[in-house]
């Protein structure tokens, strides 16, 4: 007699915990052939707001940590992801119907990307900041600082897309609320499990699953969100309305666009959510 398997319930990842959507709603996720895989949580406005609250609460501690510490935590995410790579490869294959080699390549790239961004934490201030030679007896220095809470709408795909948009945001000290790809939410929640066991403080990354056209407007108009990444928005009208809503409190906006996720990233995913602070002090006896 075959053993009945124990199926995982996929919930949300908010404030370091895995709650169901407060709305009680869920939606079925299917594999590439259209067969049922699992039910995912259908996040509501309230979930989005709870996630922003958690991200805001996590911001002072995360942004206040040393860059070395943030760097190690993000590297730790890569380590844990590596140790669970088999599970992610399986999920990618079942969700996307991808060949084993492609699934392996995607997981490799996601892990390597985390490692790449992990190393940026303590390099950004030197690369982007520095001393300014002002014409007077002043010490004058510029440093990048994180913008705050960033809403991220992840591109399609189970893992690499999500990692590619979250890692650059948090490495500099921002906290984030991400909406996972609507058709591929399962690995996002599994990634949440990786994060929850990687010394990443609760609330630094919050993951919502569900329809982006329903959840994203609440994040775009939220007055305690400082930036928004529209990478995963494919509907042009939705992108316009989100950018307009984001203007209300002058969020830093990254517009949507198609990019090859396998190609090497530039600095722009980090710099969009950085503020340059310049400090002056007189010099004299």
């Amino acid at each position: 007699m075959t053993r009945l398997s124990v199926n995982k319930t996929y919930k949300l990842y908010i404030n370091g915990q895995f709650p169901r959507s407060e709305s009680g709603r869920s939606y079925p996720v299917t594999d590439a052939k259209g067969d049922f895989l699992a039910n995912a949580s259908w996040a509501s406005r309230k979930d989005a707001r709870d996630a922003v609250k958690a991200a805001r609460a996590a911001f002072p501690d995360w942004s206040g940590r040393t860059a070395y510490n943030r760097s190690q935590v993000i590297y730790r995410i890569a380590e844990v992801l590596e140790s669970r790579r088999g599970q992610f490869e399986d999920e990618i294959r079942s969700q996307e119907g991808a060949a084993a080699s492609l699934a392996r390549k995607a997981v490799d790239a996601a892990i390597d990307r985390l490692v790449w961004y992990a190393g940026w934490s303590d390099k950004l201030p030197q690369v982007l900041g520095g001393a300014n030679p002002v014409a007077g007896p002043y010490f004058n220095q510029s440093t990048p600082e994180p913008s705050g809470v960033i809403a991220v709408i992840a591109p399609k795909g189970p893992l690499l897309g999500l990692v590619s948009v979250i890692a650059p945001v948090i490495t500099s000290g921002n906290t984030c609320v991400a909406i996972a790809s609507e058709p591929h939410p399962l690995s996002a929640i599994t990634l949440g499990e990786v994060m929850a066991t990687s010394d990443l403080p609760a609330g630094v990354v919050n993951l919502l699953t569900g329809p982006q056209h329903e959840i994203a407007p609440w994040l775009a108009s939220h007055m305690d969100v400082n930036g928004i990444d529209l990478t995963g928005v494919r509907d042009a009208d939705l992108a316009i309305s989100l950018e307009q809503a984001a203007a209300e409190n002058l969020k830093r906006v990254r517009r949507s666009g198609v990019e090859d996720l396998f190609s090497a990233p530039d600095l722009d995913r980090m710099t969009t959510y950085l503020e340059i602070k310049t400090v002056w002090h007189p010099m004299g006896l």
Partner: peptide, 8 residues
């Protein structure tokens, strides 16, 4: 890429 801000 296109973005409305950025402070590199």
């Amino acid at each position: 890429h296109f973005t409305t801000s950025g402070s590199r």
